[in-house]
Design a protein around this nucleic acid. Structure first.
Lengths: 239, 239
DNA sequence: ACAAAAGTGTTAGTCATACACCCATGA
DNA sequence: TCATGGGTGTATGACTAACACTTTTGT
């Protein structure tokens, strides 16, 4: 099954135990200091040298698409259990200039703390960009990012979110800012509190913030059972 | 670009100006006499002879995936402007027994009246099945149907539906039954009326049902502008 | 007259919104 | 004592669910 061939993009000879004409591209989201960010990779070689794009890779002949996406992300980020979901296939005939390649888009949610760049990438190769600061990316990667944002906005309204984006312990304001940032709206603090607390999604801890120059907020964590239950059942978080 | 090769499934020699290892499969929904139905095809040749599955086809090298799906469905059904949306890619390594093939799932909504079987299919080759009557299909086609149903159920709660499933003129009860059938629930007639009418989605016609053995219901049609607006903006139809 | 579905009215309760206001803490 | 964010209270209005009720039409 394995064969050697020249990668048309990089010019390098690579091992070919992967599927032809199909790739995977991932939009990796994180949340840091009130900003929603996406991990981008700077291409070092080939026709797209110096340009930024989404991390991606090939699908091995004997692995499922989901497994391929998981493998690619684990190799890149070092994170085992990240949240990962397929978006859809992107396949305009001219999306990749050298050949007809269809790509399957994924999006992932990770905590920045867990993140650890791996495998031949240096800090200058891979960088977090605020979603508002993303410029023009290679190929159709801007479309994939746009589509992933739509999906994320939809998801946040119908299922709990934050488990894979916030630290273990967080304040209600942090959670609210996550919603505000994803949905790009302003929320009313008192009403947000009530809405979230009524869901019984959070466990209130006997702990408070430290080292803040204002009244310390209570810390919460997610009730994992309830989180899972609401993920399956869904809800309406209207704005 | 064009080459001849032997199709492993059917054994037939077919023209090969299409992408390798990638197919399209479509779940075509219709609504008939209160039932949600799916179009299935009986395979006449190859390893899956006599079994039922979803209609599908190949992607030509120079067409987009969406165009391929449109072409395949137009050839099959004769319908020009059907509602069509990509689901996602399905790619378990063993989903197709003879080779590694990834398929891109689509779902379509059609009016049965518009429908007209084409291109080498006879009535015994292609048949409408009630969703509750779908048995075991070839490959992973049951997963694709299940996923399309989930997507349809989600869609019906957040955007207007019916334009591509109901006749031009319809009663409120027909629309309600469509919701009931898709969501698999019972609705309260008076409350459904108010909810839908409040959306201003329908234009009331000065026409009534004929030949019914009870009080004739008023006929409605969709306000296309409003339908489109609500499709883009989205809404919440909670149950 | 009766069956069957169309269509209206009413009530009680829940929920979202908007905003006023008090609390705790570090600088 | 002031700025900053944490957190509570409350009045209003909108909407939903449940169900009783009236209307129309063919048989």
């Amino acid at each position: 099954m394995t064969k050697q061939f020249i990668d048309e993009e990089s010019g390098k000879q690579i091992e070919k135990s992967v599927m032809n004409s199909i790739t995977i591209d991932c939009v990796i989201f994180t949340f840091d200091e009130g900003n929603l960010e996406v991990l981008l990779i700077e291409h070092a070689e080939g026709i797209s040298r110096g340009k930024w794009g989404l991390p991606g890779g090939w699908i091995k002949k004997e692995e499922s698409i989901d497994n391929a996406a998981n493998r690619i992300l684990q190799d890149l980020t070092g994170i085992k259990d990240l949240y990962l979901e397929q978006l859809k296939a992107f396949g305009e005939p001219d999306r990749f200039p050298l050949d007809r390649v269809i790509t399957i888009g994924y999006y992932a949610l990770v905590k920045k703390d867990d993140f650890d760049i791996k495998a031949g990438f240096t800090a200058s190769d891979a960088k977090w960009y605020k979603v508002s600061d993303i410029g023009t990316l290679i190929y159709d990667h801007n479309s994939i990012v746009d589509y992933s944002l739509e999906r994320l906005r939809n998801r946040v309204k119908h299922a709990p979110i934050g488990f894979n984006l916030l630290p273990e312990k967080f304040t209600l304001l942090q959670l609210m800012q996550l919603y505000e940032e994803i949905l790009n709206i302003k929320l009313d603090k008192p009403n947000f509190r009530r809405k979230i607390l009524k869901m019984k999604l959070l466990v209130s801890l006997d702990e408070k913030q430290t080292n803040v120059s204002h009244r310390a907020a209570k810390l919460y964590q997610f009730d994992t059972d309830r989180y899972e239950m609401l993920t399956n059942k869904g809800f309406i978080f209207e704005v």
